[in-house]
Design a protein around this nucleic acid. Structure first.
Lengths: 162, 162
DNA sequence: AGCCGAACTGTTATATTGTTGCAATCCCTC
DNA sequence: GAGGGATTGCAACAATATAACAGTTCGGCT
């Protein structure tokens, strides 16, 4: 798995470790148990820095020598989702680390179809519009999915130069 | 399959026929072939008036006496999606008829987790916010998914009365 | 320390959703 | 009515996700 373009420049190991430290802290505060399997799954997701499917995680765990079946991975993912540490990208059947874990937010994802990177938007404009329109219909919101597929700036440029 | 609450009052058969007539017209204009299978799938989706999974459609086709395998259904669905006649709801792995076929729009769905009905919003506010935020990131949009799960007004009321 | 109950994990099997590849058929155009 | 692209039939299979149950670990409590 090659590290994708936009991430070549940053200190990847450090950013992964930072996410894990955050996760430990968040779980500690809420009394949740970030067990070895769960932590390992979270680490794998962050290392890839791209959406990772459940069965890709499963394969990675097997390479660890860890015997693992689908439920193991799905349970870890459920836990991580419930604690806001990862998001599921419905249009990809895959999971990404959440860079805003701990802070209240509605996931809103820009998915590049070329390099496969995902950017999570933080602005309130979109969720505000969604809440307003839902309220207008008298609809009580439980969960919101916003997934925008297309091409990121870097890949647009790369495409233009070829 | 019981007709869900919000639809008890309308002339369901007429609304289905209207959607089919629209579809025939749209395909005619674009030179697309709305073959019997495709039309039947569209009809089944509209009749249910709720999201329908590919394998539910498959079962319904089999009841017609029509021998059908998964690819048959998926191909029909691909066609209907490409021509804007149905939408796929990623969070349900299911398909709904599009009430705005032919008119340019971005699907934005309110999904009631109680009655399973889906309402497609038409307002431009949400898609405008999405376009604006994407543009700010220099992201070129290809396709947008907005799926809002929760509870519709009717079901909120029903829940309150019990 | 030792016990209890809840949470977590292992394991097998199975359900659900979606795709590939190839042959046969249909339908439009020339 | 012959050629060629679109459509369909069909069989196999791939990918994603869940169910059910047994065993194990962990943390709180006495």
């Amino acid at each position: 798995m090659t590290t994708p373009l936009p991430y070549r420049q940053h200190d990847h190991a450090h950013c992964v470790e930072h996410a894990l430290a955050d996760a430990r802290e968040i779980c500690k505060r809420s009394g949740a148990r970030l067990t070895p399997i769960r932590e390992r799954v979270l680490q794998l997701i962050w290392q890839s820095h791209q959406p990772l499917g459940a069965y890709e995680l499963l394969a990675a765990l097997s390479q660890d020598g860890h015997q693992a079946a689908p439920p193991t991975v799905y349970r870890a993912l459920d836990f991580l989702q419930q604690h806001g540490l990862v998001h599921r990208i419905a249009s990809l059947n895959a999971f990404v680390g959440c860079p805003h874990a701990g802070r209240a937010h509605t996931g809103c994802f820009l998915i590049c179809q070329t390099c496969r990177n995902v950017l999570e938007l933080t602005g309130k404009e979109i969720s505000a519009a969604i809440e307003q329109q839902s309220q207008r219909q008298g609809f009580r919101i439980d969960h919101v999915i916003v997934e925008i597929s297309g091409q990121c700036p870097a890949c647009q440029q790369a495409a233009a130069n070829s």
